[in-house]
Design a binder for these strands. Structure first.
Lengths: 168, 168
DNA sequence: CTTGGAATGTCAACAACGCTGACATATGGT
DNA sequence: ACCATATGTCAGCGTTGTTGACATTCCAAG
């Protein structure tokens, strides 16, 4: 521990060494698990002309209906130009509706259409099913730990965005 | 529960509802946390002419020195053409060494050079530091749960690759 | 020894999705 | 009324993924 490269902590009756090797394994777990996390939606979307960016947009528009483009930008962490391309195709294809703001006409308020909702359901169902299985397999205490670690791993601004969404 | 959309489980003295809403929050946590997970290396690499793909290649070559191109392909889950482009630049820049196999001369065995190791260290140090902080914050039981859930979330083949690496 | 298949690499074209720059429009404070 | 600011759009470029076609090199089976 003197070199700050490892941390010894107590876990129930067991000692858990947070050596570089342990951290390395966790990084790999994160890498492979995220692949699994996105695998099902990716598969579904690849059949259509859409990708992961479309999924994210649809997801968060569903989560916060009426959100503005700028708000979505902050959540997604991309440039407005990048998001715009995705939004344009979604609007053209009739999955998303963009309404000019009543108070501030510069703003566009985004909503999912009926077919937009349907796609969102399909994608989220697949992703939720995998997560539900993983949670069932790991058990409730593991889930709570999982959530805790993830939250601690976020950047400060992202944690804020996360909590803002969560407390909705 | 009759609709299979939610699961009720017991957590210590508390009841934990795995409703769709809970799963949704976990999905968002995963999304934001992965951003944090990759943020530091991304920042470092953006200054150089490299991206996340280069990081992944360097990471796994360091993890399994002498690995073949084909083996790396399977771990990374990309095509050889895609990996080849990345490897070529890394070899040209003197970060990776590619040695023709002695037993099977078709194979190329990949190693990091001195400067390759240095970059790997820089990138991994940043990523490990974040993870160590998150683990310290969450505590050992949370870490164990975190790992468990991640493992359960992987695809079968990825879980196999993960375990193969882990047991090295 | 020839031949088929496997591993590797290259070239070309393309798609998804990041980015920057330039610009149009709407708003609001001066 | 006007100009800085916020917002959104269009155009072009870079990274990194994809498929397809094809050359090379080598091992191993016949």
């Amino acid at each position: 521990m003197a070199d700050g490269r490892s941390t010894l902590v107590h876990s129930g009756e067991n000692l858990l060494f947070l050596t570089d090797e342990q951290l390395r394994q966790s990084m790999e777990a994160m890498f492979f698990a995220y692949r699994g996390f996105t695998a099902d939606p990716d598969r579904i979307l690849s059949d259509m002309a859409y990708g992961r960016a479309h999924h994210r947009a649809i997801y968060f528009i569903n989560r916060a209906p009426g959100t503005t483009v700028n708000n979505l930008l902050n959540i997604l962490g991309v440039t407005k130009q990048s998001l715009n391309r995705v939004l344009r195709t979604l609007i053209e294809d009739g999955l998303v509706e963009s309404n000019v703001g009543k108070v501030d006409k510069r703003e566009r308020h985004l909503f999912l259409t009926k077919s937009g909702h349907e796609l969102e359901q399909t994608l989220s169902d697949a992703q939720r099913a995998r997560m539900r299985m993983a949670f069932r397999d790991a058990g409730p205490e593991a889930v709570s730990g999982f959530r805790h670690v993830l939250e601690a791993m976020m950047d400060r601004e992202m944690r804020a965005a996360y909590k803002r969404l969560r407390d909705t």
